[in-house]
Amino acid sequence: MHTAPAAARLVPVLTVEDLTTVFPTPRGLVKAVDGLSFSVGAGRVMGLVGESGSGKSVTGYSIMGLVEPPGHIAGGRILFAGRDLVRQSRTEMRSLRGRAIAMIFQDPAMTLNPVLRISTQMVEAIRAHEKIPRAEAWKRSRDALGLVGIPSPDERMSAYPHEFSGGMRQRVAIAIALLHRPSLIIADEPTTALDVTIQSQILARMQLLMKQYDMAMIWISHDLSVVSRLCDDIAVMYAGRLVETGLADRVIAHPRHPYTRGLIDSLPSRARRGERLRQIEGMMPEPLDLPEGCVFSNRCPRADAACRANPVMSVSTYGAWQWRCVHPLNEGPVHGHS
């Protein structure tokens, strides 16, 4: 399944090192992302998985330089195309955004202006970064619409966003993200609000385009079943921290972290019809009231005194596969190989 050449994995498009993003609140400093490290290779899709409050969306916004003040990146590095994005000026970030890094949001309304025709928006988006004639920009926009599977793109170019269905609007947003052939796309739950058959159409198209143009993508989602079908690599987040990362197939088949295991087992299809689901007890802790030691220790069935006592969690590594757990599951030789 791992079609990307081995070299692509060696030279990552994006490397995040020890990223920490904080939000000051009246009750204290909330660490929405705490010491996150991962990297994404060209032509590969990294699934960033977590529940609400896990910090997965904030990670996306941090990479884009779109963290809402007073929130800010308090530490770490984001290496992209030989530069540290954390240290870029606002102007430099603006020229990177949309050109080298593009973002697709859950709600296409974040990208689309309701009072402008699609053609106007796309042509402007191209000419904001490249000085090319209008006619050429128009042609390229039309081709992009065709690429994402919009039927009769010539006619649809002059439509307004509200004249599209929800699924088609999201395709337009994706087409705009693809206009400059970015080397990295950050997709924040772009298909969550769509119907299953429409979601599948878009995912099939995305998967094809990623491989075709050798783009890297970070797919932010809470839906493990989609991630397991779409992504090459996976990073599981919990309460602002990375708990497990590795090749998607291996992590999902033999999760090391009890939280990853719990997430997988929460899916109804993992239990026999009509039987109780294996649920994770309790709920995600408040960001200002995290448990001592391992953040998952208050919900973990394997937790003991060692987990609660140890404030710095150990990061165990097995090649590219990493997990933060004192008592990991499936110990012993790793099954499966790439």
Binding site: E281, G282, M283, P285, E286, D289, N298
Partner: peptide, 13 residues
Amino acid sequence: MSAKPSKANDKTF
């Protein structure tokens, strides 16, 4: 039990 109030809940209380 999931309904048991945690420390966090007491704060919001």
